[in-house]
Design a protein around this nucleic acid. Structure first.
Lengths: 151, 151
DNA sequence: GTATGTGCAAACCCTTTGCAAAGTG
DNA sequence: CACTTTGCAAAGGGTTTGCACATAC
């Protein structure tokens, strides 16, 4: 989580601006653990900025991701999903409902050192993604859909 | 890698057939380490079956994935990419050109046990995805595009 | 005041699907 | 011979983009 002032400064450093839309979208993402997709975020942000457009949400997510203030996480479904948390951690995705939860991995930073890469690569990042069943989906019998729009 | 006869038997067990197209597509995927996307596979398969359609490649990948003879791997770009290798291993994706290589991780099966999941999840799978730069991209200065169609 | 950002709507493009013909067991 | 599969082309659907207006600094 990065403070608004630093964000504004970093953006300005690249000739970009911290607009109201960008601030609200970033805060919405930082204040949830649900790893929402763009449309879900759009609906949330609309409660604060009723005239915001989905295109702005997409463009803002693109800017914030490129700046490194936000990360895209793997999703089992067709929508890209985002995370406002930046410190090293993993995720688990429910294969029935698409829910994504955080996973703490104490030795995640040691994984690259133990990895034997097939080819000459310079490693720059590491992500660990578990799959599983959340409590509610484990309860009911297995469902059809792998990733409904819900965050 | 699963032998053709077992595949045929398993498919038949579900009322499905191992057609020439399916066999060729599966073999193409099993014989490459490039983790191709559907279109790349389509072009490769076309050399053997010139009249094959892209829709068949997509449908076949869907069937083979559901049957567990093939896996979809994360891709940094907009195309889904596939892997014919089934034993536990990781991947590294070049963030410049999208190339994907295998990564051997001796203790990958122990990761779920060490993971502290935020919520009641039943863990069923684990994937480790590194990002980095392949040799050719590390050489030239950093490029724009994150995932051209090349496998 | 000027360059960046936004809203709207249309375009994009990977993937899926409907349908008639072909193929499998 | 019944039922699955294929090829073709069109539709789907998440995301991106062009453009005129609004806004940040």
């Amino acid at each position: 989580m990065v403070a608004a002032e630093r964000i504004a400064r970093d953006l300005r450093g690249r000739g970009l601006r911290l607009t109201r839309q960008r601030r609200v979208i970033l805060e919405a993402l930082q204040n949830t653990k649900a790893h929402p997709d763009a449309y879900t975020l759009f609906r949330d942000v609309k409660r604060v900025l009723p005239r915001v457009s989905l295109a702005t949400v997409y463009r803002t997510l693109s800017v914030l991701t490129k700046m490194g203030f936000v990360r895209e996480v793997e999703s089992s479904g067709p929508f890209a999903r985002f995370d406002g948390r930046l410190d090293p951690h993993g995720h688990i995705t429910c294969s029935a409902c698409g829910r994504i939860a955080d996973v703490e991995l104490p030795d995640i930073s040691e994984i690259p050192a133990r990895a034997m890469v097939d080819g000459p690569f310079k490693v720059t990042g590491c992500r660990v993604e578990l799959t599983g069943l959340c409590a509610s989906c484990a309860g009911r019998s297995k469902r059809k859909n792998g990733a409904r729009r819900q965050a």
